[in-house]
Amino acid sequence: MQRMIGKRAVSSLISLVGLVVLVFFLSRLTGDPAALYLPIDASEEMRQNFREIHGLNDPLLVQFGRYIGDLAVLDFGESIRKARPAIEVVLEGFAWTLQLALITMTLVTLAAVVLGSLAAFRVGSLFDRLASMLSLIGASAPDFWIAIVAIVVFSVGLGWVPTSGTGTVWHWILPIAVLFIRPFGLIVQVVRGAMLTALGSAYVKTARAKGVRNRPIIFVHTLRNAMLPVITVIGDQAAALLNGAVVVETIFGFPGVGKLMIDSILQRDFNVILAAIMVTALAIFVMNLLIDIAYALLDPRIRT
């Protein structure tokens, strides 16, 4: 297990380095922050001064070398916009996103596993068809559209929940609900398929021949086997949310890492972009590791 983690860490580190290099140079292509932060009528001297302070005057390679050097001592640089360490700004946003992703994925997993299992157990029934249809709609609905419609209906029309921002429990409801739909639709379908395969398997026949009751057949014999393919998809979806639900966070003005990244790109806040990318990459690495560990826990064949 430790060797697996080590191997993974090394290969992930290599991709991370590549990513940092790529993003560092690409972000510089977006333009000069001085043009954005200083008034239009700022003098060339003021602009030079601004660039000097933020180290934007040196040749790109020198800037890059300095950045890597700072990184080595875990200094991610300053945010131009907030005049605070970039990493602080990112971790704040990430904490919001992490909460949002955790709550959403927990709800999605619970609901999808129950619904998908029931649909598989009563395959062909009205319930199954309804579940399949709803999950198909859910999996294919565009989230930006749902988000806007939800705001129009529930916030503006009915006035049940706030349109955007944070502060109270009510602020969380719409973002979670909107983020819930797509992974839910997808995972219901995967669970249903995996459960169908597992229910048709030979060991279920054995369990029935042993006189095992229906409930343990579904929840003990079948579910654990069916969860193997499901976990992969859950992991993928969770990673996507951790990456920042960019569209949904922006629409709801949710201060997560997705919105932060968009804002930083628009405002040429290079250090924040880079720090955000590294933090989410680390989160995705940890996420994948958790999936592998879950796999090994569920399936003894992988352990040995």
Binding site: A202, Y203, K205, R208, H221, D299
Partner: peptide, 21 residues
């Protein structure tokens, strides 16, 4: 009755045993 009075074994025991228990 299944398992207690009448029991059954199958061809290919690998697929008829649950792999994860």
């Amino acid at each position: 009755i299944n398992g207690r009075r009448i029991a059954m074994i199958f061809q290919d025991p690998l697929s008829h045993l649950n792999p994860v228990y």
